[in-house]
Design a protein around this nucleic acid. Structure first.
Lengths: 250, 250
DNA sequence: CGTGCACTTGACAAAAATCAAATTTTGTGG
DNA sequence: CCACAAAATTTGATTTTTGTCAAGTGCACG
């Protein structure tokens, strides 16, 4: 047990979210681990560990849903196909997130690993038992769901902006906030392809590419490599995220 | 107690959602009441009834969140202001829905009544007590949250389509499914203004107006009155909802 | 029976989708 | 480690759609 650190080492299932109920001041929010060590241990009893390679399809839209997953490491995308061939990415999920949302007992979206992924797998039946036996645990799930709901609403907000540059900027800011614990990092890592970004942000691949170029040309950011971005002019960067359609106002 | 109907008369708090876990066949989903009569009664103990006139602002984005609401009758819109004056409508909510989602103890969105509204008001503190005392009740809240999450994802999906006519069509279909119990009604009632629709669908007011005209011109729908729409050609109507950007495909 | 607000419509500019081609990366097998 | 093929990304040229601005029109409510 030497070198043990409660906060940094994940020993079991871990769910991270911003507490919806504790009154805090506006400003940088803090993602915190919701599960106590005992709760994590309880969940571990019914969980199995699963690993997936990059590009693996973990679950498929429409398949019977028999389990919920909790990401330990790696990144996945949740995506749905439109009635015609369209692909829509509804979320990118990271360590500490849950996935496997269902409707009518079937998965709502397909899940694909963008990087190698490790996750805990909870059979829903066993999970439901655990939950009804432990009200606090259940409460933590509620908290996490509220978090994901807000996240989905942010996504909608992003999609509602009309200039692609704005969309991209908001998207990058979301990533920025995700990986930093309250403080903003200048360096952003992009685990997903341009095409995935396009499908998340609701535009064409070409438009995303051009938006990146615009940001680079304006000296707002730099990309040493396609998967990395560094924000050079944070002021201008944040200003861009606010630029929106005047007609939209009330 | 004469003329009493369990299913149609709301005697107390009522939460309606599609069950995520019960395995069902794809097709029309059925919204069901989640709370048993006892649960409803339990909630009623801590609830107060509140009424609002059309146009009233029930709660304001950023205000300290001290209560959660459950709509009995009427329609509300949840909306947020962008950093610049932009207005974004994140949801329209109806009888059986919950609102008052918070982050850091503050409301995430403003809530405005679109029609006269009756609702139950639960102080969060009292609600939290009730929830931890009753695991089943808590579970029903989880179910409802899952439902709202899927709803938010549908919203994102809608926003991601590129033609305004498609967005409008999807929007109308959502309304259609909401008010009919599984079967589709030809008649759709629009409790919200064109401007609200525009803010929900993520376009300009003008574009919405034109989209309505297009649908009318194509003989796909008829609008006796601005607040009512009748679907004439359901086949074409549903086909429109699928029309999307080919570039988006994988 | 006005007056104001909600909605429609038109004309033009701007942004994005689309189609297509060039270019860079990445992965693979020698 | 290199050459090559496949995939991902950038870029250009063109067309379509939508945003914008502004001027009607009609409905609702006092």
């Amino acid at each position: 047990m030497k070198g043990f650190r409660t906060s940094s080492v994940a020993l079991g299932p871990s769910i991270r979210a911003v507490n919806p109920w504790a009154l805090g001041n506006p400003g940088p929010r803090e993602m915190q681990q919701l599960l106590s060590r005992e709760e994590s241990a309880q969940l571990a009893e019914i969980a199995s560990t699963v690993k997936f390679g990059k590009g693996a399809e973990i679950s498929h839209e429409g398949d019977p849903a028999d389990a919920i997953f909790n990401i330990t490491s790696g990144v996945i995308k949740a995506h749905m196909r439109g009635p015609r061939g369209t692909e829509h990415v509804s979320a990118f999920l990271f360590a500490g997130d849950l996935f496997g949302l269902a409707q009518d007992g079937r998965y709502v979206s397909s899940i694909t690993a963008l990087t190698p992924v490790t996750a805990y797998r909870f059979p829903i039946r066993a999970l439901a038992n655990r939950l009804s036996a432990n009200a606090t645990l259940e409460f933590h799930f509620i908290t996490k769901l509220c978090h994901e709901l807000r996240q989905a609403q942010r996504h909608s907000f992003l999609l509602a902006s009309n200039r692609t540059v704005t969309k991209l900027t908001i998207f990058l800011q979301m990533l920025q906030q995700l990986h930093s614990g309250g403080e903003l990092t200048k360096e952003i890592y992009l685990p997903m392809s341009r095409s995935d970004i396009a499908d998340y942000v609701g535009t064409s691949l070409a438009a995303i590419s051009r938006a990146f170029r615009t940001l680079r040309t304006l000296g707002i950011l730099r990309s040493p490599d396609r998967r990395h971005v560094e924000v050079l002019d944070n002021t201008a960067f944040e200003k861009l995220a606010c630029e929106v359609n005047p007609t939209h106002s009330a």
